[in-house]
Structures are given as structure tokens and as C-alpha cells.
């Protein structure tokens, strides 16, 4: 068993995020779960794009590449296809992974490479100092939207499900324990683990997720998804969600309904995952459902790198007499004397 500690995974670089940024917590939780994985630092590669979150690899004492905007998924794909034994992590953000790199996120998910995607969602462009992002809420006033945005925000979980992701989860920087739990599950999953992490940008979008992290509100505004458990929430755990056919509804657990009547979380059910993904309204809205945290969906499908290398090995085993000289010569040759 490995005797490494979190420190062994930290580089000697000074961490340069703004004081109080949610990124610190994520960095810390990643460093703290890595010793449990049994992975050695040299077996791990962090690949990032551009944005505040993408400086992450510099702080890890592993292999790492801080690449270009939106393209971390593509680089990770080429790396994992050819070096399947490595543990490859993609660090991205809402701008990097859902705007400029949206296309690659989709194709990474459908191919199902065994990598972890940590998407730091802070609903803002931090590095460029405060423009709205594809996850910013409709009407948000930012430097580039002084009159409020007119862009309908993207729903990252729904996108990941739509792209046939095999592991789709959400967690939040302010809940280290939950974050560690999701990270562990993500590492253990064979296939692309898509983890949306609500991350507070205390400089340009402070409090964007307060409604879901504030101690006084979160019991009412969030719901913790646990496999096999009924969907219960509320300060006194007095509310539940049940399914009326295909329609979810919030019911009181006051005797008229019991936990047995409730929707039992089943992460293998894609239809239910889709419904949960669409619990996407803000508190106060008429159709509000508590925001789910946890694993929405998980299924098993062969990984891309497995399929690639399986084909390769099959071809090699079928033609053990493959000769490069013969390949160069081709099938039809003639001799000039």
C-alpha cells in the first residue's frame, strides 16, 4: 500500500488564485484523495485548458499540461488512447469546457475515455476579469452585459447526459466531504467521469451558489443523491420527492406520505437522471425543485482506449508475420534488371 500523503502530490509552486477562491478547496480535496488511490505521482497527468481553474496542473507534483483554450479534452484523448495505463485528469471550467471547448466535451463523453473531467463552474469568466459565461444566469449583469445577458444558460449535467456520458455528477467547493466522495467515485469509474463542481469566484461572481451552500438555506434548496435512498430534503428532513407517473412532485412527509412513497435514487436510470438534471430552477421560482448533488447517472460501457487497443492487439496477433519491408513493397511489384 502506498504511504504517500497529500503533500507528495503538491508541487513547490506558489498557488496564485485570489485569496478565498473556491479553487483552493478543490485543489486540496484532489490532493487529499490521491494517496488513497494507490497511484504514484508519475502515473498521473493533469491536462487543463485556459482559465483560472486551468492553472491547476502547476500545483500538482504530477505530470501536467496547461494547454490552450478549450482543448484539454483533445490532448487528454490522444494521451489516453496511446498511454491507457496513465491516470488522466482534465481540469476545465464553464468557459473552457462548455463554450470554446464545448464540442470536445461532447465527443469526449460519447467516446468514453477513462478520464476524469473536473469542470469548475463559477458561472463567470474570471481570468479575463468578469464577462458572463455560458452558465451565467439569464439577465445577469456583467462587464460584457451591462443590460443583463440575453443568453439562456447551458445546463452542464443535461449536456453530459445528452452526450452519453457514463458518469455524471455534481458537487460543490464548499462541501469538502461531498467533494472528496465524488472524486473517489469518479476515479473508480471506468469511463469518462464528468464532475461539475460549483465553484465560488469571490472576486467576479461572489455568492453565485450561496443558495446551495449557505448553511441556513441549503437544507431546503439542495438534495443529496444517494443510491438506493429516497429523495428527502428539508431542514427537518420533512419533504420528499415522488413520481406521479413521469412527473416529479414535492410532497410533505407529514404522515400523508412516507419515505416508501418516494422516488428512490437509481443512478442507472437515464430517464430519471434526465429529470434530476432538469431540477435547474433557482429557489423562489414556481417550478423549483431542490438542486441535486451527487451522482446523477452512472453506467458501464467499454472505454475508448480499450476498444482502440483491442483492435490494435487483434490486428497484431492476426498478422504476427507483419513485415515493414513487405508493407513498403506492397502487393504488386516488378523487377527492372
Amino acid at each position: 500500500m502506498s504511504t504517500l500523503t497529500a503533500k507528495d502530490f503538491a508541487s513547490d509552486q506558489d498557488v496564485k488564485w485570489c485569496p478565498g477562491c473556491g479553487d483552493y478547496s478543490i485543489l486540496k480535496q484532489v490532493q487529499s484523495i490521491l494517496p488513497e488511490t494507490g497511484l504514484k505521482p508519475e502515473e498521473i497527468v493533469f491536462v487543463s485548458g485556459i482559465g483560472c481553474s486551468s492553472r491547476f496542473p502547476y500545483y500538482m507534483n504530477t505530470y501536467g499540461m496547461h494547454s490552450i483554450h478549450g482543448r484539454a479534452a483533445t490532448i487528454a484523448t490522444g494521451l489516453k488512447m496511446t498511454r491507457p495505463e496513465l491516470s488522466v485528469w482534465i481540469i476545465t471550467g464553464d468557459g473552457d469546457g462548455l463554450s470554446i471547448g464545448g464540442n470536445h466535451t461532447i465527443h469526449l463523453l460519447r467516446r468514453n475515455l477513462d478520464v476524469q473531467v473536473l469542470l469548475f463552474n463559477n458561472e463567470i469568466y474570471g481570468l479575463t476579469k468578469g464577462q458572463y459565461s455560458p452558465t451565467s444566469e439569464f439577465g445577469k449583469k456583467t462587464k460584457s452585459s451591462p443590460y443583463g445577458t440575453i443568453d439562456h444558460p447551458i445546463n452542464p449535467i443535461a449536456l453530459a447526459l445528452g452526450a452519453q456520458g457514463t458518469f455524471v455528477a455534481r458537487t460543490i467547493d464548499r462541501d469538502p466531504q461531498h467533494l472528496r466522495y465524488i472524486l473517489r467515485e469518479a476515479v473508480n469509474h471506468s469511463g469518462t467521469s464528468f464532475v461539475e463542481i460549483y465553484q465560488n469566484c469571490n472576486v467576479f461572481n461572489d455568492g453565485a451558489f450561496n443558495a446551495f451552500s449557505d448553511k441556513n438555506q441549503k437544507a431546503e434548496t439542495t438534495i443529496n443523491l444517494i443510491k438506493g435512498e429516497p429523495l428527502i430534503f428539508g431542514t427537518n428532513r420533512d419533504k420528499g420527492i415522488r413520481l406521479d407517473g413521469c412527473r416529479p412532485e414535492i410532497v410533505p412527509l407529514d404522515g400523508s406520505y412516507s419515505p416508501d412513497d418516494l422516488w428512490i435514487h437509481d443512478p442507472s436510470d437515464l430517464n430519471k437522471a434526465w429529470m434530476l438534471a432538469n431540477f435547474f430552477e433557482m429557489p423562489g421560482s414556481e417550478s423549483f425543485f431542490p438542486r441535486p448533488f451527487g451522482i446523477f447517472y452512472q453506467t458501464s460501457r467499454p472505454t475508448y482506449e480499450y476498444l482502440v487497443n483491442h483492435q490494435l492487439n487483434l490486428a497484431k496477433s492476426k498478422s504476427t508475420d507483419a513485415s515493414i519491408s513487405k508493407l513498403i513493397a506492397g502487393n504488386i511489384t516488378w523487377v527492372v534488371e
Partner: peptide, 9 residues
């Protein structure tokens, strides 16, 4: 991008 990843590998 994938080629750069493969080269890095």
C-alpha cells in the same frame, strides 16, 4: 490536440 497528447505521451 490529440496528436499533441500522443506526442506528450
Amino acid at each position: 490536440g490529440a496528436a499533441i497528447g500522443a506526442s506528450y505521451g
